[in-house]
Nucleic acid binder design. Sequence first.
DNA 1: CGGTAATGTAAGCGATCGCTGACATTTGGA
DNA 2: TCCAAATGTCAGCGATCGCTTACATTACCG
Lengths: 95, 95
Amino acid sequence: MLTRTAADLGAVIRDRRKRLKLDQSTLAKQVGVSRQWIIEVEHGHQRAELGLILRVLDALGIKLDADSNLSSGHAAPKSAVDLDAIVAKAKKGKP
Amino acid sequence: MLTRTAADLGAVIRDRRKRLKLDQSTLAKQVGVSRQWIIEVEHGHQRAELGLILRVLDALGIKLDADSNLSSGHAAPKSAVDLDAIVAKAKKGKP
DNA sequence: CGGTAATGTAAGCGATCGCTGACATTTGGA
DNA sequence: TCCAAATGTCAGCGATCGCTTACATTACCG
């Protein structure tokens, strides 16, 4: 599943946990965090620590794939293909 | 790329930023964080805020896919297929 | 119905976040 | 070589983290 927000990630975590028949306490112990923390993360806590999130995903067997593909991004960045060449040319021409 | 650690994520972010010919200051402004923060994240800061990380990935056009596939996970969780059934049976037998 | 487990909420605490601002170091072009 | 931009480092500050403990609220099965 594509995860764009903390809430998405929380939903994935909760789904996976339930599918594995784990309760929050058990998962918390396995990961090494408090049950409180699990609750907050499953509710989409924005400011959770990255490292702990990664630990939970690992414990649940969830693979995180960072795909640098800008096909349908709403905030599509610039092309970046030969901007450097263009800039170099502009620099040559001006000064 | 599969990202298991904060350092992995940092590397992905740095690579993508450089490929887009952005410097840290520019990216920081676009995302709404300090340059300091960008530096630390690119160095693999474990305790960065999840929400900010997601904002950077979005700004760079990096898609995050959370795949609940436990094929080659080293911390492969339990099967969870019919544990409930087994437990239910055990409960019936004991009390 | 009970009663137990699972989940959610609250308050208080030390530790650490991310920010600002200035300075050091590295990198790259003229 | 020399300069400027980019990157990295440091210190101090308010805000917030995640933890613990205790209590409330749902689920759920007999």
